[in-house]
């Protein structure tokens, strides 16, 4: 129809675009690098860098290098339009916001968790109050489980069902 004709004069083909070049050598390089980095991850996991947090951060850093390789080469971001890169990086930014602000709360809280019947110092150490179904199973849990019968009852119905099956 008339409205189509005006616009259909020239249709550029995909063939003119950059990403139809043969990139095989990049891909092979990427996969080799990923294998090497995987080996490094496994190797580094055996080393204790001092704290749980540092270990985690090192593992995450290596994973991020690997992820960057995937994004840049396999996902073509290296050859892409800038907008797609902005879109992708924005997700990283907002994931960061989500995590940083949540941890901002979690890490600066004054802990008012109930001390329970055990020694007062123990409560500060994030020891989990065990599930009701633990009762009688792990000796360590017994004492504390008895401390919270009130909450236990609320949650217990399905949980106890699970325990009964076992």
């Amino acid at each position: 129809m008339a409205l189509e004709k005006q616009t259909m004069e020239s249709i550029p083909k995909h063939g003119e675009e950059t990403h139809t070049h043969d990139h095989t050598r990049y891909y092979i390089g990427t996969i080799i690098a990923l294998f090497v980095l995987t080996a490094i991850t496994v190797f580094v996991a055996g080393i204790d860098f001092g704290s749980n947090f540092v270990n985690l951060m090192i593992a995450m850093a290596i994973a991020t290098v690997k992820a960057s390789l995937v994004v840049l080469f396999f996902m073509h971001l290296r050859w892409e339009k800038g907008m797609n890169a902005i879109v992708f990086l924005s997700s990283i930014f907002f994931v960061g916001v989500f995590m940083v602000f949540t941890f901002l709360d979690i890490n600066t809280r004054v802990h008012v968790e109930p001390a329970g019947p055990s020694e007062p110092g123990a409560s500060a150490g994030y020891e989990p109050i065990p599930m009701p179904m633990y009762v009688g199973k792990t000796p360590a849990a017994e004492g504390e489980a008895a401390a919270a019968p009130a909450e236990g009852e609320q949650v217990a119905t399905p949980a106890e069902g699970g325990a009964a099956q076992n």
């Binding site: 995987t38 991850t41 204790d48 749980n52 994973a63 995937v70 994004v71 396999f74 996902m75």
Partner: peptide
């Protein structure tokens, strides 16, 4: 392809978190 790489990318993070905690 993009989707498949993203799923791979997620696993790149899952593997050390779940299997290599130290």
């Amino acid at each position: 392809g993009l989707y498949w790489h993203l799923v791979d990318l997620i696993w790149i993070y899952l593997f050390p978190l779940l299997y290599l905690v130290s």
